[in-house]
Write a protein that binds this DNA or RNA. Structure first.
Lengths: 193, 193
DNA sequence: ATATAAATGTTGATTAGTCGACAAGTATCG
DNA sequence: CGATACTTGTCGACTAATCAACATTTATAT
């Protein structure tokens, strides 16, 4: 894991190639059966190059899942729509549900690899929510209160979706409908203070 | 134009990206309107890298056209078919016709850029014909006779196709039918001697 | 016409990717 | 059990790609 410049065109290309190769392989075989050798063979890269960017295939999985979630998020929350409030939170929940279903299907879910994957999801949710709250500029709300609320919402969403996905006894829409008032009350309280 | 190892994976990738970018641009604008800057922008490569591989866009055009002709050739002359004699020569002519029509359409043919392009075509035709004649092993034919005949055929083909493409008053098949006996007589003579 | 902008071709310093090799771990088979 | 083969993570030497800068030339516009 050499230190590299994240903006170097070569670095972006190489990572893109590694991740695409990895995604392609995931469609064909189980994660545990994929070797680093497989990945670089398909990407036509040297094996040492892989280790310049990732510690091992587990870290690659985390990074790749974070990327895929970013795509999912972008498709559910278009930038130009400028969503806010309840509609934004609802969409966030649906995006996480959709992504959760897709990735567990893709990984054949033999292990609970979820923990590391959740990291990236929570961080991205947190970012979207913080951006929104920052724009809203609630009265009498200091930065720490905003941060706490954003954290509560993002962690809550991931929590209920993980719980939901284990059994999936209701639709994603129903889950979002159920949970929405609770999450909105967190925001309402922020504006009331 | 630094000297580079043609087998280095990075070199193959870089050239492929430059050529693909160039081909994409040719579909959008005239060759003369394409700058080196355009090419590297689209390929997300540094401009200096371009000059490691090509002197200028004209040399890139030559190399790219040679590549495209190699593809055309491969599709008209499948390796496993192991064509020989009249059928091979006929296919060669049709391949050149097809390629000539495609590339002139692609380049909007405002200039006679053909000369440099012909270089690669003739060389590849010559290679195919020589391979075939080598296998046939005609009696009493020394190497120099084979080479002369291969040159005559390859240059003849390019000549008649360039002439034909200017007006295109007959189909490619008709042209091939017309010219075939003449070309075959060159080969027949080689075997008779 | 002249200024402004853009493209060209080249250079030297830096960084990333390639290659071959290594020791160490771990399946797999006889 | 031992032999064989494969994967892993790391290393140093080498080569290619990036970047910023430069002097020139070529378009574009005012």
């Amino acid at each position: 894991m050499r230190r590299v410049r994240n903006n170097d065109p070569r670095v972006k290309r190489t990572r893109a190639m590694i991740r695409q190769s990895f995604i392609d392989l995931l469609a064909v075989k189980d994660f545990e059966d994929i070797t680093v050798q497989d990945i670089v063979d398909r990407a036509e890269l040297n094996r040492a190059t892989f280790y310049n960017h990732y510690q091992d295939k587990y870290q690659l999985l985390d990074a790749t899942m974070a990327d895929l979630f970013a795509e999912t998020l972008a498709s559910w929350i278009p930038q130009d729509a400028n969503l806010r409030g309840a509609e934004l939170v609802r969409r966030l929940m649906l995006a996480v549900c959709h992504w959760q279903v897709e990735t567990t299907r893709r990984l054949n879910a033999r292990r609970t690899l979820t923990q590391a994957m959740e990291e990236g999801v929570k961080r991205q949710l947190y970012g979207v929510i913080m951006d929104c709250l920052d724009q809203a500029q609630p009265p009498h709300a200091d930065r720490r209160r905003l941060e706490r609320v954003a954290t509560m919402i993002s962690w809550s969403i991931v929590g209920i979706v993980v719980q939901w996905s284990a059994r999936r006894e209701e639709t994603a829409e129903a889950l979002a409908e159920e949970a929405l008032p609770y999450l909105m009350s967190l925001i309402d309280r922020l504006f009331m203070s």
